[in-house]
């Protein structure tokens, strides 16, 4: 899982451990974040998300294990300055400086030249919709505005890896939507790691996700794999016939399960060349309709929230193969 300079991984954690006294925050965490992905980090409170962020950003040091940031080993300000930026969770900017002064200061520190910084700060102020508050002191901003300044500073310059801890927390729906769209638009241009409790947000913004619990990764991979979008179709039937045998006959080699109380058929299959999820759905629907079944709804995979809720509360299970 080494992320060398030419590796396709932006971030790699291998068996990383971190304790705060007797509290074990990370217990051998393995994580691989592909370059150019928008990667979601999901887990309950105390799962180790913020600790993972902090180790990645060099704020904390791992007790054990290997950390590789952009192929340059553990975070080092000299090596990673301007290449890695972050929105910390509960960090306060200097209260007595103006928004513009803060951004200029942070931008200059990360290596943006004196000539370029003005234009760069204007771009960021426009991005986070704070142009009209640029000359105001930070202490006068609302919580949501502070969050936007925090997001803005994370996108100063041209960072390769951006870590956003609860980025849209405290933003109004319109602003949150704008930020989500912006993050989504970054896909392929830079790597963004998003930590959030808003699972719908993770599902809509990210293309990869890792579910963390008790300092370990429970499940990780592309969103489509984790949610089963490419391997599972659920068809809910209205009152009427349930042609289970006909459906199983039409989908030989696939698994068909019937949940009577929910009146839902769950089809599990392996995607193959020439046989995608759409093809399987079509085959199943044709069989059902031919047998007189009435279709209520069709859904691909399960929501991330559903997957999250299915996470066992006890000891994390071993990673499933390929995930």
């Amino acid at each position: 899982m080494s992320a060398g300079p030419d590796s396709d991984l932006a971030l790699a954690f291998r068996a990383v451990r971190k304790s705060y006294g007797r509290i074990r925050a990370l217990q051998g965490l393995d994580l691989a974040v592909p370059r150019g992905s928008v990667f979601g980090l999901v887990g309950p409170n105390g799962a180790g998300k913020t600790t993972t962020f902090s180790i990645c950003c060099g704020w904390l040091r791992a007790d054990e294990g290997d950390v590789d940031v952009l192929g340059g080993g553990p975070f080092d300000a000299a090596r990673h300055r301007g290449r890695v930026t972050a929105l910390p969770q509960d960090s306060a900017l200097g209260r007595d400086m103006t928004v513009r002064e803060q951004l200029v200061y942070l931008g200059r520190l990360q290596g943006i030249g004196a000539r370029e910084i003005r234009g760069e700060v204007e771009r960021i102020l426009e991005l986070v919709d704070l142009k009209d508050r640029a000359r105001d002191r930070v202490r006068t901003l609302s919580h949501g505005m502070l969050r936007r300044v925090g997001i803005g500073q994370a996108f100063l310059g041209d960072p390769e890896l951006v870590l956003l801890d609860e980025a849209t927390n405290g933003l109004d729906p319109r602003q949150a939507h704008g930020i989500r769209e912006f993050i989504r638009a970054q896909r392929g241009t830079r790597t963004i790691i998003v930590s959030s409790h808003n699972l719908h947000e993770i599902e809509t913004v990210c293309d990869h996700v890792a579910l963390i619990d008790r300092g370990r990764v429970v499940m990780a991979g592309p969103i489509s794999t984790v949610t089963g979008r490419d391997a599972e179709v659920r068809i809910t039937l209205a009152d009427g016939p349930v042609p289970l045998a006909e459906t199983r006959a039409a989908l030989t080699g696939d698994t068909v399960e019937w949940d009577a109380p929910a009146r839902t058929l769950t089809l599990r299959f392996q995607e193959k060349p020439g046989r995608a999820a759409e093809d399987v759905t079509g085959e199943a629907l044709r069989a059902l309709l031919a047998a007189g079944a009435r279709i209520s709804s069709v859904a691909r995979g399960q929501s991330l929230e559903r997957r999250y809720l299915e996470m066992p509360a006890g000891e994390p299970p071993p990673l499933p193969p390929g995930v």
């Binding site: 975070f75 910390p88 520190l109």
Partner: peptide, 14 residues
């Protein structure tokens, strides 16, 4: 205390 140092620590040495 305010963790404001985290904004700076990513951009320059301690």
């Amino acid at each position: 205390q305010s963790r404001g140092v985290r904004f700076v620590a990513m951009r320059t040495g301690r």
